[in-house]
Structure formats: C-alpha cells, structure tokens
Amino acid sequence: MTDQASLILEVHGLTKTFPGRAKPAIADVAFNVRRGSSLGIVGESGSGKSTTARCIAGLIPADKGEVVLDGRQIDGLDRGLMRQVRRHLQMVFQDPFSSLDPRMTAEELVGEGLLVHGLAKDKRARREAVVRNLELVGLSAADLERYPRAFSGGQRQRIAIARAIAVRPKLLICDEPVSSLDVSVQAQVLNLLLDLKAQLGLSILFIAHDLAVVRYLCEDVVVMNEGRVVEAGSRDDIFDSPRHPYTKSLLAAVPVPDPRMSRRRAPLKEEP
C-alpha cells in the first residue's frame, strides 16, 4: 500500500508491562505514520495511548517491539545514540505549566535544543533562529527575555511547540497538547499545528482523548482500548464508517454542540 520511503515512523508489536502488573499496559501495538501527515491515537484513560507515545520517544523502554524512525531502527539504542535520535523526535506535553522550566527564559527554552545539538554557529545565529521560531508560533522577539510565568497557558504551549520544532524534528509527538486549554485557546493551538504542518512539512503523532480534536487535526487515526489497537484507518474510515463496536460506542458518546442533533441521540446502553 505505502512504500517505506513514504513512512516517517513504523511501529511493530510494541509491548510493555509495568513492574508488578499482570496485565500489559500496551500489547502488540502497530501502526505507521506517513511522512508529512498527522496520525492521531485516541482512547480513554488507561487505553495505553500515552504509554505508546512514551515508548516510541524512548522515555520508557518497551519490552518488545520495533520502532523505526525514517528507516532507522531506534528502539534499544544506547544513551549516546538515543541523544542523537532525540533531536528528531520532539515532544509536546499536556501541561505547559509543568513542562517548561520556570527558571529559563523563552530564549533559553527555545534555544536549548539548538545549543545541545549544535545547530547554530554562534550565540547571535542562535538568537536569530529562536526569534524565527517564536514568530512561527505567533510570538515575537519581545518575548525573548520573559519567563514562563509571564505567559498565559496558550502562550506557554506555543513556547513548548517552538522549543520542539526549533530543531526541525522528523516527528513531533504531541501528548494531549490542548486538553488543559480553554476552547478558544485550544482552537488557536490546533490551527497553529495545522499551519506548521503545512509550512514545515511536519509529521505529527498526536495523542488525545477528544475525538473531535483528532478529527480536526489528523488524517489517520488509531483507536486504542485496554492497551490494544482496536481499529485503525483514515479519518474518513474511522469517523464516517467505524467498524469496531468500541469505536462506534466512543463516537456515539461524544456530545455534539448542536441541540437539534444531540437531542435525537438515543441513550447509551449501560455497561454491566
């Protein structure tokens, strides 16, 4: 269907059981992310979607399985090699209040990756690159010296995104990046991600519990439940003709902001 060169990420048989747990947190998770596209993993709490993201990013070791980034197998690399790879696997987390070091300025936060990976030849070049990236996310040079506490939640998430894209990663992994934001701010951040994807050709792995957000942002969708992939397909497949009963029940449960639609909805069956 798709040849290897068109895939930025391949995940095969990813399995992880946390110490002391009988049941695996994820089992046999497999999917591909196409280059320049975004894939959303949706699921409820405990579905294993975040564990999947963390195993891919190498933040926790998987027990089994393969992770291939742009043709290179990256699971089980030693620390030194993983550090090189990490430039190409950047993450944005849910809570912009705890994911940014409060003692670092916006310039330091966005410039850190450029410094660590030697991507700017001197301080001036680095500052210029930082300003370019701040502007890409809707901030400006005036924000360079400001600390995270001086920014709103939405602005902090923009800084987190600028920090992640500054090193031009091959894959941006977003773990619930808008779920702690108000709806009007959420819309801005979602539009920003769409714009960056178009402008920079970013490939995005997007983890979310909100199906409407995934429909808006992601061309491909993986539905997870209890650590397993229950259904995967294109956005149209999943949202217009879901096959798995679990996917159907998820979609039926989402409140639709239209009183003419939602009042026709039949009550869901109680779970036993």
């Binding site: 801005q188 409407a212 639709v256």
Partner: peptide
C-alpha cells in the same frame, strides 16, 4: 459566536477551519 466557532465537532468535516474568539 467565537465560542461556537472555536469548538471542533466530531460530526463536522475538518476542512471547516476553526475560528478563535479573538
């Protein structure tokens, strides 16, 4: 109007761009 335009909808075609309150 801004709030209503900012909510992504699970039943809506994503070609429709969200607007922000601002």
């Amino acid at each position: 109007k801004g709030l209503l335009g900012a909510v992504p909808r699970v039943d809506m075609d994503p070609s429709h761009r969200l607007v922000s309150v601002e």
